[in-house]
Lab assay of single mutants.
Amino acid sequence: DEDSERELEKLRKNNASKEEIKEVLKRLGFSEDEAKKLAEKAG
C-alpha cells in the first residue's frame, strides 16, 4: 500500500541496509520470504 511504498522510498534514499529494509517490511506485515525478496529488489 501507499504507506509502505513511502517507507521503502525513504529507506532507499537513506541507503538503508537490506537488513533494515527487511525489518521494516516485516513490521508492515510481510512474511520473512516476501520481505527478503523486496529488500533484495530495493537494495
Rank of each mutant, 00 (worst) to 15 (best):
A39E: 04
F30Y: 11
F30W: 09
K10V: 03
F30D: 02
E23M: 00
N15L: 09
A39V: 11
A39Q: 04
E2G: 11
E40W: 00
E2V: 14
R6P: 07
G29L: 00
G43M: 14
L25P: 01
K41Y: 08
L38R: 06
L28N: 02
L38E: 07
L38K: 05
R27G: 14
E40Y: 00
G29F: 00
S17Y: 03
G29W: 00
D33E: 13
L11F: 00
D1E: 11
E32T: 01
E19M: 03
K36T: 15
V24I: 11
K22L: 15
R6Q: 08
E20M: 09
F30C: 06
L25E: 07
L8H: 02
K41F: 09
L8C: 14
L25F: 01
E40H: 02
A35D: 02
A42E: 14
L8R: 04
L38A: 07
L38D: 04
L25T: 04
S31P: 08
K36L: 14
E2Q: 12
E19L: 05
N15T: 06
S31W: 02
E32D: 10
S4T: 15
L8N: 04
L28P: 02
E32V: 00
A16E: 03
E19W: 01
A16T: 03
A42H: 15
E2K: 10
N15K: 07
K13P: 06
D1L: 14
G43F: 15
S4P: 13
N15A: 09
A35S: 05
K36V: 13
L38N: 02
K10N: 13
D3Q: 11
A16F: 04
E2M: 13
G29A: 01
R12D: 07
K26E: 14
A35M: 05
E9I: 07
K37N: 11
N15I: 06
E7N: 05
D3V: 12
F30N: 03
D3G: 08
K10M: 09
L28F: 02
V24R: 10
E20Y: 06
R6Y: 09
E40T: 04
N14W: 00
K37Y: 05
E19T: 07
S31D: 08
E23S: 02
D33Q: 08
A16C: 13
L25W: 00
K10Q: 11
G29N: 01
E40D: 11
I21G: 01
K22Y: 15
N14P: 04
G29E: 03
K26P: 07
E23R: 02
G43Y: 15
S17C: 14
F30K: 02
L11Q: 06
R6H: 10
K41W: 10
N15F: 03
A35I: 13
K37T: 10
K22N: 07
L25A: 05
K36W: 05
D33A: 09
G43K: 09
R12K: 08
A39D: 05
E20L: 06
E19V: 03
F30A: 02
E19D: 10
K36I: 14
E19R: 03
K18D: 10
L25G: 04
G29P: 00
K41R: 11
L25S: 04
F30V: 04
R6F: 10
K41G: 13
R12E: 09
E34Y: 07
E23Y: 00
E7F: 13
A16Y: 06
K10I: 10
E5L: 15
E19N: 06
S31M: 04
K41A: 13
A35V: 08
L11D: 07
S17A: 06
K13Q: 11
K37H: 10
E2D: 11
E9H: 02
E20Q: 09
L38T: 06
A16N: 02
S17H: 04
A42D: 11
K26L: 10
K18Q: 13
R12I: 15
G43N: 11
K18E: 13
E9W: 00
E2A: 11
A35G: 03
D3S: 11
N14H: 09
E19I: 04
D33I: 05
E32K: 00
F30E: 02
K18V: 15
E32W: 00
L38Y: 04
D3K: 12
K13A: 10
G43Q: 11
R12C: 15
S17Q: 05
G29S: 00
E20D: 09
R12A: 09
G29D: 02
E23D: 10
E20I: 06
L11K: 05
K22M: 14
D3M: 12
D33P: 05
D1H: 14
A35Y: 06
D1V: 13
D1P: 11
E19Q: 07
R27K: 14
N14V: 08
R27T: 06
E2I: 14
L25I: 06
G29Y: 00
R12Q: 12
L38M: 12
K36R: 11
N15S: 07
G43S: 12
S31V: 03
K41T: 11
S4Q: 10
A35L: 06
K10D: 10
K18N: 10
E5S: 11
E32H: 01
E40V: 03
D3W: 14
R6I: 10
S4Y: 15
E19P: 02
A42C: 14
D3F: 12
E40L: 00
E34M: 09
K36Q: 14
A42S: 10
F30R: 02
N14G: 12
A42L: 15
E5W: 15
K36N: 15
A42P: 08
R12V: 14
S17G: 06
N15D: 08
K10T: 08
A39R: 02
L8M: 07
E19K: 03
A39S: 09
K41H: 12
L25H: 04
L11E: 04
L28Y: 01
L25V: 04
K22I: 15
S17R: 05
E23L: 02
G29T: 00
N15E: 08
N15M: 09
S17M: 07
E32L: 00
E7P: 02
K36F: 08
E32N: 01
K36C: 11
A35W: 07
R27C: 12
G29M: 00
S4W: 15
F30T: 03
